[in-house]
Design a protein around this nucleic acid. Structure first.
Lengths: 118, 118
DNA sequence: CGGTTTTATAACCAGATGGTTTTGTAGCGT
DNA sequence: ACGCTACAAAACCATCTGGTTATAAAACCG
């Protein structure tokens, strides 16, 4: 699972402004000024965030006269969630008991195969 | 959904070394030197990464004489995956057709309710 | 043509990040 | 008591990040 895709995706998601932009884009395409409106931030500030999202492949942009409408591209989010899914058994409620059980058997953890990049 | 938890979690996951450390911890507890072994990096370098993971709540540490064994704490990963789940319909294969359909109806997207913090 | 809207670019700044080397410290083993 | 092991802490460095202001360019509007 491509490491730098995950790098860029997680890094992009680590900022609340960018997450809010993605949330806004769930409602449909939006121009830069529309996206900037809800935030107490300058327009170039938003443009920078959009560049980060674009380089992470989370946003694509079209053309409409002067406007550059932004569109949500969710594919990298699937990569992220696929990676996270490898840890699912570790946060599930049943894991507490399972872990204790396997611990008594001198085991390491559930499904402890080569999960290098899970 | 607590924003700073997601901030810290996604930021921690944005580094391949830290993701590899988490992957290693799926096999069970490990000491700092055990964790440092696979990497071409100094021990303090790994300790810094561990501090990031610890502050994100992804790792907890015990005591065993001089050793400070690290343990995976996956709860924040659930938060992350719960947030991502709000975008699930946007990357699903069926979304292409659904989006096109809704687009013809002048709609915005699937389930376009207030997903501010999905 | 001239002005307005929309966006991008550049230059700059403070602070975080990712790494290093060096040094210190706690606890074990002999 | 001595030295070794395991780790942390500090100081330092380069680079990235998140923000700003000011400026420029592109396309519309009248």
């Amino acid at each position: 699972m491509a490491a730098d895709v995950l790098d860029a995706t997680f890094a992009a998601l680590a900022d609340p402004t960018r997450r809010a932009i993605l949330a806004r884009l769930m409602e449909g395409e939006a121009t830069v000024t529309e996206l900037a409106a809800p935030f107490a931030m300058s327009q170039p500030g938003i443009s920078k965030h959009l560049r980060v999202l674009e380089r992470a492949g989370l946003v694509s942009r079209g053309r409409d006269a002067q406007r550059r409408p932004c569109r949500l591209e969710a594919a990298p989010l699937k990569e992220a969630v696929d990676w996270l899914a490898g840890y699912r058994s570790y946060w599930e409620e049943s894991y507490q008991r399972l872990d204790a059980l396997l611990g008594e058997l001198g085991h390491d953890g559930p499904d402890a195969a080569e999960r290098e990049t899970p």
